[in-house]
């Protein structure tokens, strides 16, 4: 592995972890291209390998957030345990409609989320909607 490739992998890893800590994502969005571009993996192997790195980020991130009082473990476990249902639903959906429609649908949902979350970002500092930690 060339030194620049190594630097690229390390940088993508740190960036993915920072994003995980700041906004609670696992980092797969950065791991996958990082592994393809700098570690020589194909798309499928990169996605599979990324999942293992996501486990590391999730375990350490959830542990730290628990220490800060920001973890509702029961809800997290319920979501994690029920998520395989979604994989089934997704597989069925993928066979009913085109991938393009699925992509557009999720993109539309995320834009609605972005709008609503952005409105919260613009709320007054002492708004009761931020009651728990605000």
């Amino acid at each position: 592995m060339e030194v620049w490739d190594l630097a690229g992998v390390l940088a993508m890893g740190v960036a993915a972890g920072l994003a995980g800590g700041l906004i609670g994502v696992g980092g797969g969005v950065l791991f996958v291209p990082g592994l393809v571009l700098f570690a020589g993996l194909g798309q499928l192997d990169a996605q599979a390998t990324s999942l293992l790195a996501v486990v590391l980020v999730g375990v350490v991130g959830a542990w730290r957030q628990a220490g800060y009082g920001n973890l509702r473990l029961r809800d997290g476990i319920v979501i994690g345990l029920l998520s395989p249902l979604g994989v089934l639903v997704g597989t069925v959906a993928a066979n009913l409609v085109t991938e393009q429609l699925l992509r557009l649908s999720f993109a539309a949902v995320q834009l609605v989320f972005a709008y609503k979350v952005a409105k919260r970002a613009l709320r007054p500092a002492d708004s009761p909607s931020g009651r728990r930690n605000g």
Partner: peptide
């Protein structure tokens, strides 16, 4: 399909990132 060594290569720096990210978030 899982390359454990490469998962650690990108995952260990990510653990550093998530420690910094969670601390910054507080």
């Amino acid at each position: 399909n899982v390359h454990v060594g490469k998962a650690l290569l990108i995952g260990v720096p990510a653990v550093g990132g998530v420690l910094a990210g969670t601390a910054l978030q507080q």
